[in-house]
Amino acid sequence: MCGIVGLHLRNPDLYPRLGELLSGMLGEMQDRGADSAGIAVYGNPTWAPAGHACVSLLELDVDPAAAATALGAVVGAPVAAQYVDNTLVVSADVATDDLLAAARTTYPTALVAGFGNDLTVLKGVGAPRDLAASWDLASASGWQGVGHTRMATESAVTPAGAHPYAVGPEQCLVHNGSFSNHATIRRELRAQGVEFDSENDTEVGARFVAHQLAQGRDVETALKEVCATFDGFYTLVVSNRDSFAVVRDAIACKPAVIAGTADWVAMASEYRALAHLPGVENARIWEPEPEVVYAWTR
């Protein structure tokens, strides 16, 4: 089943409340998927200082001070490192590619959960409300966030199988549904040199979108290619540092609702995840049409 949420803040006065609002949205989706969860937060300076490259690492057991020293020696600049529950978040005022390469070289067995300027990705196994509390999500600030609660159907319940899938710079994808032809598309992408971290069908969608964007296509075109290429039932949210977009398959059997005001745009699998947002009583609320790409830019 799974539950997905996304919140794009238009009013900077609400930035300090991003985590509070996103935490409430995620918690409301717990009964759609209680085995694991994840979030992507854009703009929380506690985790990712403004304008700094940030890499989120899972499946790693290392002292954060030692990690900061080791990575700083590679990139030639000071590195900050901290654990947020089980995720080691490292940041530095360097190019994202340089910090990412240093992390992969220094800790080759770690799982890269996300990377990019101002972006932090946290994923874990367990009930979404418990995970949100362990991350202290309610205290996070920022301008945009997406989240996912998972009911596993396609792969193991592990951090690697949890969403979001953040496989391109500052890009994230969350998914409710199932891609029936993911194995074929995975083979085609691997033949083009794309590497995978899991057997999850959602990762195939994320790698496909990232591959499209890396070739210069915009998000709308990439998501239209998803609709043309993937079989199955799905609602997707794709985000980058400055925007997020929503698309559903041709049958649109997976639930989704979008709401918007002058202060924010939000989406969720069910309206109850939006009911606590400020001013929702005056929002425009609608169900996205099949295969129509809805996108908003900061």
Rank of each mutant, 00 (worst) to 15 (best):
L88F: 04
L88T: 03
V89L: 09
V90R: 04
V90T: 08
V90H: 04
A92Q: 02
V94R: 01
V94N: 03
A95C: 12
T96S: 12
D97S: 14
D97P: 03
D97E: 13
D97V: 13
D98M: 13
L99M: 12
L99Y: 09
L99S: 06
L100K: 10
L100P: 06
A101L: 05
A101W: 02
A101H: 02
A102R: 00
R104Q: 15
T105W: 00
T106E: 01
Y107T: 00
Y107R: 01
Y107N: 02
Y107P: 00
P108K: 05
T109P: 00
V112K: 05
V112N: 08
A113N: 05
G116L: 02
D118K: 14
D118C: 13
L119W: 12
T120A: 13
L122M: 03
L122H: 03
K123P: 07
G124K: 03
G124A: 11
V125K: 15
V125Q: 11
A127K: 15
A127M: 11
P128Y: 11
R129L: 08
R129S: 15
D130K: 15
L131Y: 05
A132V: 07
A132L: 09
A133Y: 06
S134G: 13
W135F: 15
W135R: 09
D136R: 14
L137C: 09
A138S: 14
A138W: 04
S139E: 09
S139G: 10
S139K: 11
A140M: 14
A140D: 01
S141P: 08
G142D: 08
G142M: 10
W143N: 06
G145H: 01
G145M: 07
V146G: 02
G147A: 13
M151F: 14
M151R: 15
A152H: 03
T153Q: 07
T153C: 10
E154Q: 15
E154T: 15
E154V: 15
S155N: 12
A156T: 06
A156G: 07
A156P: 03
V157Q: 07
V157C: 12
V157S: 09
T158V: 07
P159H: 06
P159I: 03
A160F: 06
A162Y: 06
A162N: 05
H163V: 06
H163N: 00
H163D: 01
P164V: 11
Y165N: 04
A166N: 02
V167P: 04
G168Q: 11
G168I: 10
G168K: 10
P169M: 10
P169V: 11
E170F: 04
E170I: 01
Q171T: 13
Q171R: 14
